[in-house]
């Protein structure tokens, strides 16, 4: 009898420990959900609405891989792009147009001092150049100006085949949170259509490639490409198409005989 009572007490104690553990785990889950903006004590009337609206909390801890900066507030608009004016690492001044141009531009905001940036300095200097996120895309490296960066260090790191410009104003204009950071500018519209960071160029390229697809910038056919062209780019395209067809300047087909219905009309005739 005594043994039975002892065994029963042990079982009760064990179950008590189990219940306490479950309650503690439940409390931790509730706390984590609360941190993510989900409050189960609001009632049961609005679970569908809560599902439709992503939970947002300023206190929610954003987690990224080590060395990867946190993205800016996802609700903040990316906005209009601005052209770049700055200094050259080896002395001189530069102006890089990214708005109103016919191509997209990847702005790679890098630093000579950050560890993660080293991966991108190397990737962008790879022989043959880096694989780009989309067709007709230019990469420009942007560092802080010489007051905040070592021009000599940047000059050592800068790939020969990629324009590198030093301008702290661009970091302010684009509200770059930290380096490394990448923005994709759509030239024709002059707007930022994608941004983010990663631990490798492949990650960033995929990220920006999705931004290109989301923004409908993937110029997979001539019609789409032509529709987005400005006047000069369109003229270039027409020239190249005609040259490919063997029609050079002065080709007879460009100067057809007047239509018979115009035969009796001379310049200046009434």
């Amino acid at each position: 009898m005594a043994a039975l009572v002892v065994a029963l007490a042990l079982v009760v104690a064990l179950l008590g420990v189990l219940v306490i553990g479950l309650l503690r785990s439940h409390a931790e889950i509730l706390r984590a959900l609360h941190d993510l903006g989900v409050n189960l004590e609001d009632g049961v009337a609005a679970p569908a609405a809560r599902r439709r609206t992503p939970a947002v909390s300023n206190r929610a801890p954003m987690r990224t891989s080590e060395g990867v900066p946190r993205p800016r507030d996802e609700n903040a608009p990316m906005g209009d792009a601005v052209d770049l004016t700055g200094e050259l690492p080896l002395g001189g001044a530069a102006r890089v147009a990214v708005t109103g141009v016919g191509h997209a531009t990847v702005l790679a905001f890098l630093s000579s001092g950050c560890g993660t940036c080293g991966v991108f300095w190397e990737a962008l200097a790879a022989p043959g150049g880096p694989e780009l996120p989309g067709p007709d895309t230019r990469v420009v490296i942007v560092t802080n100006g010489p007051k905040a960066e070592s021009a000599a260090a940047v000059a050592d790191l800068a790939p020969k085949a990629i324009v590198t410009i030093m301008t702290s104003a661009a970091w302010d204009d684009y509200r770059v949170p930290v380096s490394p950071y990448f923005l994709l500018v759509d030239g024709p519209s002059g707007t930022v259509v994608g941004e983010g960071s990663g631990t490798s160029w492949d990650q960033v390229r995929d990220l920006l490639g999705r931004a290109i697809a989301d923004a409908g910038l993937a110029r997979s056919d001539d019609h789409n490409r032509l529709a987005r062209m400005g006047g000069q780019d369109r003229a270039d395209w027409v020239d190249s198409e005609m040259q490919a067809a063997g029609i050079e300047p002065g080709h007879p087909s460009l100067y057809p005989e007047p239509h018979p219905s115009h035969g009796g009309i001379e310049d200046g005739a009434p």
Partner: peptide, 22 residues
Amino acid sequence: LPRRWDAQIRSAGGELTSRSAS
């Protein structure tokens, strides 16, 4: 510079264009 134009002014002694190596 008009809109859409790129430009660079290299200081004397700068080697941006990699003249000898390119």
